[in-house]
Structures are given as structure tokens and as C-alpha cells.
């Protein structure tokens, strides 16, 4: 699943650790999501969407690149 978490986080001037603290996970989890190596739970996806004040679909794109 693709996402634009890195762009959104950097736009807010947040480090991975700061975003992790804000949504209650570890920095490694944010790093794994940004590198498309881990798909977050629905709960965490909602947390991220709430943090960036947008919908889950704005951050995550289920379409995979061929």
C-alpha cells in the first residue's frame, strides 16, 4: 500500500520520532510505514488521519505500483 506519510510529516516539520509519539507508536513503525514495508492497523490509520486532519484515503492508496 502506497502512502505519502513522509511528505505530510516533513511538511509539518516533524521527525519520525515526534510523529510516533503523537500517534502512540514507535519510531520504527513510522519508518516501516513510510518505506511501504508495513501496513498499519485500521486504528493507527485513523490516528494518522486524525493527526493530519484528513481522511485515511488521503494518506494511503491501496493501488500497488506494477
Amino acid at each position: 500500500m502506497q502512502n505519502d506519510l513522509t511528505t505530510r510529516r516533513e511538511d509539518e516539520g516533524l521527525s519520525q520520532g515526534a510523529l510516533a509519539d503523537a500517534v502512540g507508536v514507535t519510531r520504527q513503525t513510522i519508518n516501516a510505514i513510510e518505506r511501504d514495508r508495513y501496513d498499519p492497523s485500521l486504528e493507527l490509520a485513523f490516528e494518522l488521519a486524525a493527526h493530519f486532519d484528513c481522511s485515511i484515503e488521503d494518506i494511503f492508496d491501496p493501488e500497488q505500483d506494477e
Partner: peptide
């Protein structure tokens, strides 16, 4: 502090 999270369980 967050010592473990959902990715650890995964």
C-alpha cells in the same frame, strides 16, 4: 512510553 506497538505483535 511506547515500548511495544502493533508492529511488534505483527
Amino acid at each position: 512510553a511506547t515500548l511495544q506497538d502493533e508492529r511488534d505483535w505483527e
